[in-house]
Computed example of a mutant assay.
Amino acid sequence: MITDVYLTADRFPLVRDVGYHRVEGTYAHHDRTLDFDVFFYVVEGNMQVIEEGREFFVQEGEHLFLRKGLHHWGEPFFTPGTSWYWIHFDTPASNVAALNEYEPLQGLGAYFPDHYAYHIRLPKHGSSPWHLSLRQLLDAIIHKFREPEANAMTLVSIEAYALFLQLNKAMLGSRNSGRSDAISKQVMAYLAEHADRPFDSEVLGRHLNLNYSYLSSVFRRETGQSIIEAHTKLRLNKAIELMRGTDLNIAEIGERLGFHNPFYFSRVFKKILGSSPTEYRKRFY
């Protein structure tokens, strides 16, 4: 059963309600099934929540996401004096399974069609050093929620989305510190430095002193793309920079990047970006 809450990169969640609560005596979480997702952040004390039979004890400084449509409840285990923030929100309807699970690669500055075609799995439960700033951010969201102003709910939803993205980054950042992640970053750094020339797998392997097949496997597992795909996009980034900043024609730009056949350069460009270099250049002005 899927209990994680997912966002998509192209649409923000719509906040229904946001607030803060404190209990002085014994308290049990409501027994209910909601048609929206829930975010909790415990400031003091602790709370117990059971979601479809899975028990969570949320301690001070920890958060929890509850998925809409799942039955959740609690027993009277709240510590007196427990306080928490909550955000109730609707996630955009989409076929999450059809979207990429990987974010666009860092360093791809130009727009590519798949930049927003991915989903974001929010960290179900836990904490990180970044959580120390959550209370101030949530107070600001509540203040905006209660203040009558134009576009208030949209602004609240955007700020909640930003908070969730930062939370996701903080939690994943503490986990993605292993060897595979480090290797992928080294590969990307090399590709970015050599984006103005054709790719050579043997040179990359020697540079990192690792077998290329191993590098390729690790990179795809970490990024969802092949090394050659990433290198091609970085080369096209360079091409777009030259289109914007020089008067070089398309053939000259391709030549500078190691595409000695202008027709091949145009074909690769259109395959990745959906239009020819000439058509793409016309959009700048």
Rank of each mutant, 00 (worst) to 15 (best):
A9H: 12
L172W: 12
G224Y: 02
L132V: 00
H30T: 11
G107T: 03
E62V: 08
H115S: 12
L155W: 14
F265L: 06
L137T: 00
D37W: 14
P129L: 03
E52T: 09
S180D: 09
R32P: 03
R32Q: 14
G19C: 02
E51P: 05
A93N: 10
A230W: 15
L191P: 11
H194E: 02
D31V: 04
L14G: 15
H63W: 13
S216H: 09
Y85H: 04
R281G: 06
L105F: 11
I228F: 13
S157G: 00
N237C: 04
D247F: 15
L108F: 12
L215K: 09
T232N: 15
S226A: 09
S217C: 06
R267Y: 13
E75Q: 14
V187D: 04
T3Y: 05
T232R: 15
E255I: 14
F145M: 05
S133Q: 09
P92L: 00
A182T: 13
Q166P: 11
S177A: 11
Q106A: 12
R54K: 05
I183W: 05
E75K: 14
I120C: 02
E222K: 15
R22M: 11
L14V: 08
R244S: 13
K185Y: 07
Q186R: 07
L215S: 10
G109C: 09
S201N: 10
A251E: 03
L155M: 08
P92S: 05
H115M: 10
Y264R: 06
I141V: 06
S177D: 02
P198T: 05
L167F: 11
F284H: 06
L215V: 12
L234T: 13
I240Q: 09
F39D: 01
G109L: 12
G25H: 11
L64F: 04
H231V: 00
Q225R: 10
R54N: 03
Y264E: 10
E101R: 08
V218H: 03
E255R: 15
V18W: 12
K238Q: 15
H115D: 07
P262S: 10
G254D: 03
L70G: 07
S177L: 07
F112A: 07
G53E: 04
E159G: 00
L66S: 02
